[in-house]
């Protein structure tokens, strides 16, 4: 009885005690942990900043060199560092050609694989087929390079004729790169397709659509932006791919869009030149950073666009 009364009519003293007891306190340990975790998170931004500074700094040195002019760099089609000629198009042409072949292979194959897996395959078939794509995705690119040079090229040469296509050519590199990118395009497209709400699928079937009509006329159009994002990431991956082209597409810069010829891509050029013992600070050395900066910027823009599309796409169905 008496305890009840006392709790109802708490004395000032008691109230103060409680107030002190419940008062927010500074937990130094907690704050320290939170700050260090934040710093670790921020560190990832420093990686990007470091890439930009490192590439930008050396690229500036390159462009500051009297032998080099910006106009020549962006317009000339000759890349011969010994002769002081730095025209990026000689390397860009090979990058564009191999990437275009890769995309032409990977997009139709990857998209139809995704449609099959998401709209046709029953769970048992899926459980068998999906891991195969995952294995393809996990094979190191240098192994793909071996495959391109020692399997695909000999076959191409026997089909097309050894006089028309060389031991090093962009076609084999591009085709194998397409196979390498296929799983990426397929898995991103599959994500986009399965994000299309089931109600749309049901609506199409309830109107009497066949699976083909439902998937190509309703579901694929509904997932189109997600598929677009997949294609863009695929392009970015193809542009940045190094080992396949370094092994299979040739080691001389060559301004050409003919896939049967050998030509060196931007990435393969960086790998070949820096693989030797190039002295630091020379124009040749700095030119590699200028190429890498271009690669970085192009892939960065592609990745940003793709991410933006994916975010927009997700909002659409939420």
């Amino acid at each position: 009885m008496s305890t009840e009364i006392s709790s109802l009519t708490a004395t000032n003293q008691e109230r103060e005690n409680w107030a002190t007891h419940l008062k927010r306190r500074v937990r130094w340990g907690e704050s320290a942990i939170e700050s260090s975790l934040f710093l670790v998170g921020v560190l990832t931004i420093f990686v990007t900043i470091a890439i930009t500074i490192v590439l930008g700094d050396q690229a500036l040195l390159f462009f500051a060199d009297p032998e080099v002019t910006l106009v020549e760099f962006f317009t000339s089609t000759k890349w011969q560092p010994q002769a002081g000629q730095f025209g990026i198009w000689a390397l860009v042409s090979a990058t564009l050609t191999t990437s275009a072949i890769a995309i032409l292979v990977a997009v139709p194959l990857g998209l139809s694989a995704a449609i099959y897996l998401s709209e046709y395959a029953n769970p048992r078939v899926r459980a068998v087929l999906k891991p195969i794509l995952e294995i393809l995705a996990g094979i190191p690119t240098v192994v793909y390079g071996y495959f391109a040079l020692l399997f695909v090229t000999p076959i191409l040469r026997s089909i097309i004729g050894p006089d028309k296509i060389g031991v090093y050519n962009m076609l084999a590199a591009g085709l194998v790169m397409g196979i390498m990118i296929l799983p990426l395009i397929s898995s991103m497209s599959e994500d986009a397709l399965s994000a299309v709400p089931n109600s749309l699928r049901e609506a199409a079937y309830a109107m009497g659509a066949t699976p083909f009509e439902a998937s190509t006329q309703v579901i694929v159009p509904a997932a189109l932006s997600g598929i677009g994002a997949a294609v863009i990431v695929g392009i970015s991956r193809a542009v940045g791919e190094t080992m396949i082209v370094a092994v299979a597409s040739g080691a001389t810069s060559n301004f050409t869009f003919n896939p049967l010829e050998a030509a060196e891509t931007m990435t393969a050029h960086i790998a070949r030149i820096s693989g030797g013992d190039l002295p630091y600070g020379t124009v040749d050395y700095n030119s590699l950073f200028a190429i890498a900066l271009m690669l970085f910027l192009v892939t960065l823009v592609l990745n940003l666009i793709s991410q933006w599309i994916v975010t927009k796409f997700r909002e659409q169905y939420e």
Partner: peptide
Amino acid sequence: TNINNLAGVPSIVYGMLGLAI
């Protein structure tokens, strides 16, 4: 966003970063 982007940077660019740093 930055982490998602870093995942897409070509590996050869990391090589250049490693070389310089």
